[in-house]
């Protein structure tokens, strides 16, 4: 299998305080990696390092086989942050404008998007079930709808890897479910590699084929079928957690979303 992300001896710290120390891992094409860990364990920092928003203090990262400081094909990488709580909701932009913005690398400098590009926007919105909202202002939508628009924005550029940093924060349980199911489908049907940070351990156990547990400046990758036990999570978070058994039946919820 092709390795799309490789980290070797990766370290990072702010002002002499080490947050990540000597991390080694790799992600294969088509993986669905769930990252869990307590607050402050460096999950978001790791994603920022993989997106080159932060520079590592040591070690190296390779993305799609290239060293990160030489990597230029950022259009192949999608990133969805906890936007639903943080973006300027009074920004005067329609759903269509927001999604079309990410077609940048396809349209090119100094050019304007054409018919073909508008169709791609429609398709991406279709995938997240937001097509009929395309001329609405982004600020008028609910948190869950906004987050789906941001996912569509990433999808429109047909990424090979998608990073999602707690994409369901501030979203109600039903929409949260819809987002997870959609991600699973994108992973299965379009073969997009997904890296998801979430506290929702049960959702991750169901969908992810790999789980990265972060804590104590390090990272361990597990197979979810083997080790996702309560003892393990208690050890990771430092307190007891009940693995609640809510259902993740995707075939049903996908249908609901698309219609």
């Amino acid at each position: 299998m092709k390795k799309v992300i490789e980290a070797k001896h990766l370290s990072f710290g702010y002002d002499n305080k080490l947050i990540l120390e000597n991390i080694n891992f790799s992600i294969d094409k088509g993986d669905y990696l769930g990252i869990i860990g307590s607050n402050g364990s460096g999950k978001s920092t790791l994603i920022k390092l993989l997106l080159a928003t932060l520079k590592p203090s040591g070690g190296e990262i390779k993305i799609l086989g290239e060293r990160i400081d030489k990597f230029r094909r950022w259009d192949k990488i999608g990133y969805v942050s906890q936007k639903a709580n943080s973006f300027n909701t009074s920004f005067p932009a329609t759903v269509e404008e927001v999604v079309a913005a990410n077609l940048y690398s396809r349209v090119g400098l100094f050019r304007r998007p054409g018919k073909e590009h508008r169709k791609q926007v429609d398709n991406a919105l279709e995938l997240v079930g937001m097509r009929e909202y395309k001329s609405r202002l982004i600020g008028e939508l609910s948190g869950g709808q906004q987050q789906r628009v941001f996912i569509a924005r990433v999808l429109v550029s047909q990424p090979e890897i998608m990073f999602l940093d707690e994409p369901t924060v501030g979203i109600d349980a039903k929409s949260e479910e819809a987002v997870y199911c959609m991600l699973a489908r994108l992973n299965k049907e379009l073969g997009i590699t997904i890296v998801l940070i979430s506290h929702d351990t049960s959702a991750i156990t169901v969908h992810a084929n790999k789980i990265a547990c972060m804590g104590n400046k390090g990272l361990i990758i597990h197979d979810p079928k083997e080790k996702m036990t309560e003892e393990f999570i208690t050890e990771l978070y430092g307190y007891g957690v009940n693995l609640h058994a809510h259902r993740h039946d995707c075939r049903n919820c996908i249908r609901k979303e698309v219609v």
Partner: peptide, 23 residues
């Protein structure tokens, strides 16, 4: 006119614009 979409995207979300490959 020429940088319309660049300016829009960067104003809306500068980080995403950079990740989209925008200079």
């Amino acid at each position: 006119v020429l940088l319309y979409k660049e300016l829009f995207y960067m104003t809306f979300d500068e980080e995403a614009a950079r990740l989209a490959g925008m200079p």
